[in-house]
Design a protein around this nucleic acid. Structure first.
Length: 429
RNA sequence: GGUGAGGUGGCUGAGUGGCCGAAAGCGGCGGUUUGCUAAACCGUUGUAGGGGCUAAAACCUCUACCGAGGGUUCGAAUCCCUCCCUCACCGCCA
């Protein structure tokens, strides 16, 4: 949610900022402005009436004590109560609409974010590692995985449908190894606190992060008398860890890491990435999350992105880091780095992590504040999140980058201990 | 699933229709006293939104907030309804 005071005082700047995102917000902003105008006319009137009502209350109480007649005051008060009820009703309707409009507006991009409508305008900020030279045609992971007997799409489709996969044997083991490896790295070297959150969350939690009310069609909702949703990312439960709390600045930044499965309906992506593990309804992810004081969040974004990149470096996977342009960023983000890993079968870098600073956008929705240690005025905290990393896509990258001509796949050295000493996945005998 | 008890400020806890934004205590902050610390004493201590004043604050003033949402009433922390959550015991269960 945007800062309403800033929205009022810097309306044109806000409008220009939102325009760079491409999604037309002009109509919403104008609606907001006219609602605001009516509100500021209505509010003082209701409040004056309520003040009068409170004074009447005292008068009536006083009169009753002394035994005076209260009839005339009561008649007057009754009339006023009716008037308050009408105006209050209007105000409630108006504020509900205002709230919905506010919740539907995306975050304002940071001024340094490059402007552009599509991924073409993203800016590469650094690149690590040299894609390997293959003396044979590198296979896509879906061929490799199926041939090795470690990924099964057909059986998954039979029980669950398209965009699901079964991992078997070293495939399942590799996934588990990656999760353990990432968690150990982030809790150990990087100092994050490990969390295992609920995988089902309510509407309020999803509104806090910005997934609702606008993107309900992207989520899986539980049927029946529940009103719960499967989490699309651990960002949701992690952000809501401190919902409606005021944090002490001395404890910041708070850093959390969680492994969770993630569930996405992928509505509207029917043609894209239909083959393989790239785009699934269910996938595993290790997520990094930080809560900081307002002044610290951009330093923290660099650090968090570095923590995610570290995973790829230890796995010796070539990757590059992109600063997303205004049109390519997510709804809640003010600034985002995507980390892309090299996939030799496609000859492209593919997103494997997305690290964002949402500034106070989510904190405002979720009521997450912080206060200077010595006391002082509370402010909204800043929240950041990033994948560290998407497990399925990391698994893909390993299969493709570490494959050999005979169809076997070497295990990166850093993972061998997590694989119980297995150094290579070979074709089954 | 059943039965019972509850949700009040940073915390404990009083408050069953009106001078209650809310007693008291603890904690926090400021001060007095003191060689220092402690103790004692005095004062102060929520959030949000309007309006006024201002360069901006401070400040003044009003409104709202006692789990959430509705209702009754001139007036609700207090009465009624719905929902959420917590605790205890019983049953069932990974």
């Amino acid at each position: 949610m945007l800062d309403t005071a800033q929205l009022r005082d810097a309306f044109d700047d806000t409008r220009r900022g939102l325009q760079t995102r491409g999604a037309g917000a002009d109509a919403a902003l104008e609606r907001l402005q006219s609602l605001e105008q009516v509100r500021r006319e209505l509010l003082p009137r209701v409040e004056a009436l309520k003040a009068e009502r409170n004074r009447d209350g005292e008068r009536i109480a006083q009169a009753k004590r002394t035994g005076e007649d209260t009839a005339s005051v009561l008649v007057e008060s009754k009339r006023r109560a009716d008037e308050i009820k009408v105006l209050d009703g209007q105000l409630t309707t108006l504020e509900e609409e205002r709230r919905l409009v506010l919740l539907s507006l995306p975050n304002l991009p940071h001024p340094d974010v490059p402007q552009g409508q599509t991924a073409e305008a993203n800016v590469e900020v650094r690149r690590w590692g040299q894609p390997r030279d293959f003396d044979f045609e590198p296979k896509p992971h879906w061929d490799l995985g199926v041939a090795l007997g470690i990924i099964d799409f057909e059986r998954a489709a039979r029980m669950s449908g398209a965009r699901f996969a079964v991992l078997l044997r070293e495939g399942a083991r590799l996934s588990r190894a990656l999760i353990a490896f990432m968690l150990d790295l982030h809790t150990g070297t990087h100092g994050y606190t490990e969390v295992e959150p609920p995988f089902l969350v309510n509407r309020t939690a999803l509104t806090g992060t910005g997934n609702l009310p606008k993107f309900e069609q992207d989520l899986f909702r539980i049927d029946g008398d529940w009103d719960l949703f499967l989490i699309p990312t651990a960002e949701v439960p992690l952000t809501n860890l401190h919902r409606e709390e005021t944090l002490d600045d001395a404890t910041l930044p708070l850093r959390y890491v969680a492994y969770t499965p993630c569930f996405r309906s992928e509505a509207g992506s029917y043609g894209a990435d239909v083959r393989g593990l790239i785009r699934q309804h269910q996938f595993d992810k290790v997520e990094l999350m930080s809560f900081t004081a307002p002044g610290q969040s951009y330093d923290e974004l660099e650090r968090l992105t570095g923590c995610a990149e570290k995973v790829l470096q230890l796995l010796e996977l070539p990757h590059r880091t992109m600063l997303l342009c205004t049109g390519d960023m997510g709804f809640a983000a003010a600034r985002t780095y995507d980390i892309e890993v090299w996939l030799p079968s496609q000859g492209v870098y593919r997103e494997i992590s997305s690290c964002s600073n949402t500034e106070a956008f989510q904190a405002r929705r979720a009521g997450i504040r912080c206060r200077p240690s010595g006391g002082g005025k509370a402010a909204f905290a800043h929240t950041l999140n990033g994948s560290g990393l998407a497990v399925g896509r990391t698994l893909i990258a390993i299969l493709e980058n570490y494959q050999d001509a005979d169809g076997s796949v070497r295990i990166p050295a850093a993972l061998v201990p997590y694989m119980g000493g297995v150094e290579r996945i070979g074709p089954r005998a």
